[in-house]
């Protein structure tokens, strides 16, 4: 596993860790402060992980393949976010959900983490399966 792949793996795992705590232990009942705290915790964990990886692995700069994989993964997560945004508007316009339900910190965090997990997961898959321009 290459240096960049290890970093992405770390991002994915810390995301899953924080997600499982928020939605497993707290059952999604999150306040604004829990939301901010979990994002900060995730960033701190990712920084610590990156330092550990840098200490024990040979550092490699990103090359064209890494950038292409990143671009493709961002495209997948962006399109997913657009679809979810469309569903959000549709849910609001059709009065299926209330504004309160659709702006709850738990839902926003779930969407954020879900899209991030999709991005990092796609990157990991593309690193393994190969990528074409």
């Amino acid at each position: 596993m290459g240096y960049q792949e290890k970093l992405i793996c770390g991002q994915f795992l810390t995301l899953l860790l924080v997600c499982s705590y928020l939605f497993g232990v707290l059952r999604g009942g999150v306040s604004l402060w829990t939301m901010l705290g979990s994002i900060i915790l995730m960033i701190v964990l990712q920084i610590v992980y990156a330092i550990v990886v840098a200490m024990f692995s040979k550092k490699e700069d990103r090359d064209e393949r890494d950038r292409l994989i990143e671009y493709k993964a961002y495209k997948v997560s962006y399109l997913t976010l657009m679809v979810l945004g469309g569903l959000w508007v549709w849910g609001l316009m059709s009065h299926m959900f209330t504004v309160g339900q659709l702006t709850s910190p738990g839902l926003i965090l779930a969407v954020w983490f879900g899209v991030e997990a999709l991005r990092t997961g796609t990157q990991l898959v593309l690193h393994r399966t190969g990528v074409t321009a």
């Binding site: 290459g2 240096y3 890494d66 074409t132």
Partner: peptide, 22 residues
Amino acid sequence: VGATRQTVLAIEAGKYAPSLEL
């Protein structure tokens, strides 16, 4: 060539077609 070992590995395995520059 200024790439990562994983990229060379992927090219050899036919899993990645490099840019013209590479």
